[in-house]
Simulated scan of single mutants.
Amino acid sequence: MSAIHTRRLGLLLVALAGTVSLGACSSIGSSTRSALNSVTPYKVEVVQGNFVSKEQVEALKPGMTRQQVREILGTSLLSDVFHGDRWDYVFTIRRQGVEAQQRRLTMFFKGELLDHFEGDPMPSEEEFVAALDTRARAGGKVPKLEASEDELKKFDPKKDGDAKSAADAPSQQNLPPLPPSYPPLDAGR
């Protein structure tokens, strides 16, 4: 056999081996593809904005100052320089397997006082927590979101054994007086 025939035979064997291996890969690939299609990737939960509850909206009254509104709702997400008497509170949540939620609440001011507000109906804090928790609970109850007076007393620092009594605490008369002023931080300059 000549060198050309030997080379052609070698190339033919390489091509045949490649074809057989590709056929084996395609049968493995289809089972691998079906396994990969059954696995869904994790999608990150996206929460943006200020959650405003029904209880917070009920606390709002026309005539409140901007500071009072800010103490109830927090700082607004959107501030428009062209509409200085308007604050927009927007809340959006996107979760895997759940339809995206978006709620809006707009405050309208006249000067420094709240004139009126409008927006979507807001859920109570309890309803919102129930909507977030997709795990099955025994009895389907939402955990209590407030502590009773008796439960708060458990954390009272004046309770016996938790804190020093007034007799054990150092009195203000035993402390040295504060200096009239402190030296500058960069005194060496």
Rank of each mutant, 00 (worst) to 15 (best):
33 R>Y: 05
179 P>T: 05
106 T>D: 00
74 G>W: 01
140 G>E: 04
76 S>H: 08
39 V>Y: 02
38 S>M: 04
81 V>C: 08
83 H>G: 05
159 K>A: 10
113 L>C: 06
100 A>V: 07
32 T>I: 15
166 A>I: 12
34 S>E: 04
140 G>F: 00
166 A>S: 14
139 G>Y: 10
52 V>R: 02
167 A>E: 14
92 T>N: 14
142 V>A: 11
159 K>R: 11
153 K>P: 12
185 L>F: 13
61 K>M: 00
14 V>L: 13
186 D>F: 14
150 D>M: 07
154 K>H: 02
52 V>L: 10
48 Q>M: 12
18 G>Q: 10
104 R>S: 11
92 T>R: 14
110 K>A: 10
114 L>Y: 02
42 Y>F: 07
112 E>P: 02
116 H>R: 05
90 V>D: 05
104 R>Y: 15
4 I>P: 04
84 G>I: 10
152 L>W: 03
182 Y>L: 13
96 Q>A: 12
138 A>I: 14
158 K>T: 14
72 I>E: 02
172 Q>R: 13
156 D>N: 13
187 A>T: 12
54 K>T: 05
122 M>K: 11
163 A>D: 11
95 R>T: 01
69 V>S: 01
41 P>H: 07
32 T>G: 13
50 N>R: 04
178 L>R: 09
27 S>W: 10
88 D>E: 13
53 S>M: 00
